[in-house]
């Protein structure tokens, strides 16, 4: 698995380290450059320096929640092309709506199928 400069960047944000471990493995296997953050604030800090193609966001996190992180990302001009995927255990219709309203492109519910997740990310990368 080679990580080149040209490799697409993905930022994974989740307060559960074990989930981050799993996502990191799956995305690295596909050849993406994976960055990690464990809180919303940490994620925003990281976004000052990197411009990922995709951000994978949890919703319920200590401090700032995922919806807020998404809204802030949408206010950053540098991240205009960055896509946001919510990956959360909050599965009600209302949660989904707030997810899309905050500016996300995809909303996936935990627990997820590894293939579905990976192919979703790949699709986004291929077709925008």
């Amino acid at each position: 698995m080679q990580i080149s400069d040209s490799a697409s960047k993905i930022l994974v944000v989740d307060d559960e380290p074990n989930i981050v471990i799993a996502l990191e493995y799956l995305l690295q296997r596909e050849g993406y450059e994976v960055h990690k953050a464990y809180t919303g604030q940490e994620a925003l800090d990281r976004l000052e320096t990197i411009t990922p193609d995709v951000v994978v966001l949890d919703v319920m996190m200590p401090g700032m929640d995922g919806f807020e992180v998404a809204r802030r990302i949408r206010q950053m001009p540098a991240l205009e092309c960055t896509k946001i995927i919510f990956l959360t255990a909050k599965g009600t219709q209302r949660d989904k709506e707030s997810g899309y309203a905050s500016g996300a492109e995809y909303y996936m519910i935990k627990p997820f199928e590894n293939e579905v997740f990976v192919s979703t990310v790949n699709e986004i990368m291929a077709y925008g």
Binding site: E16, N18, I19, I21, A22, L23, Y25, L26, A89, K110, P111, F112, E113, N114
Partner: peptide, 14 residues
């Protein structure tokens, strides 16, 4: 419950 199940499911699948 979903949070640990997510980790377990993803990693065991891996």
């Amino acid at each position: 419950l979903r949070t640990p199940v997510t980790s377990i499911k993803a990693l065991s699948r891996i």
